[in-house]
Structure formats: C-alpha cells, structure tokens
C-alpha cells in the first residue's frame, strides 16, 4: 500500500519532470529495530525516488554502514541527506510527513537547481560568515 496517493504521485511526477535540473540523491539511514518511523520514512524515500529518473534512493543501515553515516555526519535515525551536485548539508531527522513532506520536496527542487529563493540581502549577510553554523529546526508532524 503506497503512502503517496495516486493523485499526489501524478502531480509530483509532473513537477519533477518540469523542474529538476541536476540529479538528486536521497541518502537514507535506517535500521530494522528500535526505530519508530524508519520503515515509513524508507517507504517515502523510495516512493519519491520512483517519481523521477533524476532522483535516486540510497538506503544504508545505520549500524552496519557506520562509515557512511559518519561520512554524512548522521548521528540519529531515520535520517535523510538531500544531496545534489554537492552535499549542501541538508538533513531530515525523523519522518518527513505532513508539512515536512512539502519541505522535503522543496529541498529536492532547490538542491537540484543548486539555488535557493533567499534574498540578495540574505546572501550578502551570509558572505560575512567565517565559522561554521549548525541550524536545527525542530518540528512536529502536522
């Protein structure tokens, strides 16, 4: 039983066909026990990847693929890294359902294009950065 409705899948397939530029990899870390939403998150990742030739699902086991998890800086699961031509440092921890599903799709578009819709003022401000910043946005599924 798919998580995405036929209607949503058709809509996304069309939007992906129109808007995706560079290939996007959804690099996911999962495990089969002691993880509440790993199974559903993996299913979302696979279903989304099925909607476009430009999107690939790469599923890793958090425990047995510990080297990969380290490479992507993943320290908890379920985790999805949205990776384009480069790794822009975008991670989803926990199930991307409700509004966060929209965030995931929007991130796929941005990463595929390699650009964001941020203002020039923001870009300019970010040029001042000389040290790393880690942003964590806490959300709940709605």
């Amino acid at each position: 039983m798919p998580l995405l409705s036929e209607k949503d899948a058709a809509y996304l397939r069309e939007e992906f066909a129109k808007n995706l530029v560079h290939p996007v990899r959804l690099v996911m870390f999962t495990q089969t026990f002691a993880c509440q939403y790993c199974k559903e998150t993996e299913q979302i990742v696979r279903e989304v990847a099925d909607l476009s030739d430009k999107i690939t699902a790469e599923i890793y086991n958090f425990v047995t693929d510990a080297d990969k998890a380290k490479e992507y800086g993943v320290d908890k699961i379920p985790a999805i890294a949205v990776v384009g031509e480069r790794d822009y440092g975008i991670r989803f921890y926990g199930i991307p359902s409700g509004y966060e599903f929209t965030s995931l799709i929007e991130d796929i578009f941005d990463v595929s294009r390699g650009t964001t819709s941020l203002s020039d003022a923001t870009r300019k401000a970010l040029e001042q950065l000389t040290e790393p910043v880690h942003i964590q946005v806490f959300v709940t599924p709605t």
């Binding site: 509440q36 939403y37 800086g73 908890k76 379920p78 822009y88 440092g89 975008i90 991670r91 989803f92 921890y93 926990g94 199930i95 991307p96 966060e100 965030s103 941005d110 990463v111 390699g114 650009t115 964001t116 941020l118 923001t122 870009r123 970010l126 040029e127 950065l129 000389t130 040290e131 790393p132 910043v133 880690h134 942003i135 964590q136 946005v137 806490f138 959300v139 709940t140 599924p141």
Partner: peptide, 17 residues
C-alpha cells in the same frame, strides 16, 4: 545551500525527545 559553512537539520521533536 548559500554558504558552505552552514548545515541545516530538520528534527522531528516527538521522535527525538
């Protein structure tokens, strides 16, 4: 994405109490 110095996580609060 606009800065290589920034990494950004979404964290689902209920799964990571």
């Amino acid at each position: 994405m606009e800065s290589d110095l920034i990494r950004a996580d979404m964290v689902e609060a209920i799964e990571f109490p």
